[in-house]
Design a protein around this nucleic acid. Structure first.
Length: 476
RNA sequence: CGCCGGGUAGAGCAGUGGCAGCUCGCGGGGCUCAUAAUCCCGAGGUCGGGGGUUCGAAUCCCCCCCCGGCAACCA
């Protein structure tokens, strides 16, 4: 039986429209999913939308829609853009799926039955105008930004999870890399949370309407974070398909941005341990984008719309540009001109033009056929390890250095001069065959990043008569 | 306040003790198979600031400045 690979992205909050950040995580996950599939792993690639909570209910109301209708609409936006970008997901989960809700209830009931959930009080700042708790961070001069009034202190009944009971075990697993947290810097950040001390956390809300009712107290709704994390197990059958669940769990990688590692590295493993399940093998946290050194935000108005990018560059180029520009583990800054420069330099000039050169010469000098079976003269092996370690930009850099070498080989050998003299026939055939072999080998690594580009290249090289064809990436 | 990152050529980044690198852009030259593409050469940095350890520091230690993140829900 082949090996399995279960990879997840966070589920995206439907309150927001899809933006470049959502795409970034999802494309990275897609590259891994495609890579492992082509290496004969059985892959389950999960993404989806997080749909409950007070904010969603509020936004729905503003749009004059019922919460469900609102989430139907916004969830679809995520599906659409993922489809547009060739995301090869195996399952799209919504936290409003009946299956998910049942799974969550089963999970939380178990914790309650075994005494890991207890009744307590939640104290917080409550704004009467908003009808919800707000955080200190949201306050402007001590006032609610929407209602210009100071919030009042209020307590409500909540249920709490005995996090503290499980902290030592979670910490031990992290230290021993049983839960591998990467990059390393994030691991030390997480271990720092333990040093600062962590409290039991609330798993329910009384004043939230739009959520999954607690099975043991229907007046309370499950706190969205607790419920959201469980998508990773409900999607693969926790509670309703033991066979599938056993097959896929534990996750091989939970992929996410660095803002939510605490939930994934501490709360989530603790919940799993409490319910007797295995912990995820790896949590990988990638960086954030800034745009012109500013945080991407709606109020600043610098949010990059994925459709605009796809319209300008095309699907494959968008995938390439997002993953090649910065180290995956670190933050990166996007400037308006960067993508265009990189598109022209890497895709049009280097790869695109190399293809035109090789295809054209095969057509002109070799009657559209690859003359011989020969080995590629360019070494590409390190790419594999780089992809497996999620060093996407380095993997791509390695591939593009190989493309440079191929261009150099052409210039050094000057096939167009060889073609003028029949005595060079053998050498000319050999050089062009080598280049074709190189492209076929390169395409294997390009495929996870740029699936349709890879298909086009293979299609050209395997056709009856190779022709120069249309340029793959036009300069812009 | 606390905790975690980051600050290296015009731009984006690599480089964790031994002559400061890569890509893009820029300047010059070559080639003509190719998408004004490609190939060669070159200019450009007191490695955020200050102090210390060391024969030697971008790299280790201390202090400071700036940017980003976490602290009950924006990738």
């Amino acid at each position: 039986m082949s090996k399995k690979f279960y990879i997840t992205t966070p589920i995206y909050y439907v309150n927001d429209k899809p933006h470049i950040g959502h795409l970034y995580t999802t494309i990275a996950a897609d590259v891994l999913a495609r890579y492992y599939r082509q290496n004969d792993y059985e892959v389950f690639f999960l993404t989806g939308t997080d749909e409950h909570g007070a904010k969603v209910a509020e936004s729905a109301k503003e749009s004059g829609l019922e919460p469900k209708a609102f989430t139907d609409q916004n969830s679809q936006l995520f599906r659409d853009i993922f489809k547009k970008l060739d995301i090869s997901l195996d399952y799209f989960i919504r936290t409003t799926d009946a299956r998910h809700e049942e799974s969550v209830k089963k999970f939380i009931q178990k914790l309650y039955d075994q005494g890991d959930i207890y009744e307590g009080k939640y104290e917080g700042l409550y704004c009467v105008g908003c009808e919800k708790f707000i955080t200190k961070k949201e306050l402007v001069n001590g006032h609610c930004p929407d209602h210009k009034k100071p919030p009042e202190n209020l307590t409500e009944k909540n249920y709490f999870f005995k996090l503290k009971k499980y902290l030592p075990e979670v910490e031990r697993l992290i230290i021993k890399d049983k839960i591998l947290i990467r990059p390393d810097s994030r691991k030390s950040e997480v271990l720092g949370f333990f040093k600062q001390g962590l409290d039991d956390f609330s798993v329910s809300r009384e004043k939230v309407e739009w959520g999954i009712p607690l099975p043991f107290d229907a007046k309370q709704k499950t706190y969205v974070w607790v419920e959201a994390l469980q998508n990773y197990i409900s999607a693969i059958g926790y509670g309703d398909n033991e066979k599938d669940f056993k097959k896929w769990w534990p996750a091989d990688v939970h992929l996410m941005a660095r803002d939510i590692i605490k939930f994934h590295c501490i709360y989530w493993p603790a919940l799993l341990i409490a319910s007797g399940l295995e912990v995820p093998k790896q949590v990988y946290s990638h960086g954030f984008f800034t745009v012109n050194n500013q945080k991407m935000s709606k109020s600043i108005g610098n949010v990059i719309d994925p459709y605009t990018m796809v319209e300008q560059f095309g699907v494959d180029a968008t995938r390439y540009l997002l993953l090649s520009q910065f180290p995956f583990s670190q933050d990166g800054d996007i400037k308006a001109s960067l993508f265009k420069e990189k598109y022209n330099a890497d895709l049009a000039n280097n790869l695109g033009n190399l293809l035109s050169r090789v295809f054209n010469m095969l057509e002109k000098y070799c009657d559209g056929k690859i003359p011989q079976q020969v080995a590629s003269p360019i070494y590409l092996a390190p790419v594999r390890e780089l992809i497996e370690n999620l060093k996407f930009n380095e993997a791509l850099r390695e591939m593009w250095q190989a493309i440079d070498k191929a261009n150099k080989i052409i210039d050094e050998n000057k096939p167009w001069q060889m073609a003028k003299d029949a005595s060079n026939r053998k050498k000319l055939d050999e050089i062009l065959s080598q280049l074709a072999s190189f492209l076929l080998e390169l395409v294997v690594y390009i495929r996870p990043f740029m699936p349709s580009t890879a298909a086009t290249i293979v299609g050209s090289l395997e056709s009856e008569k190779i022709t120069k064809g249309e340029p793959l990436f036009m300069r812009i």
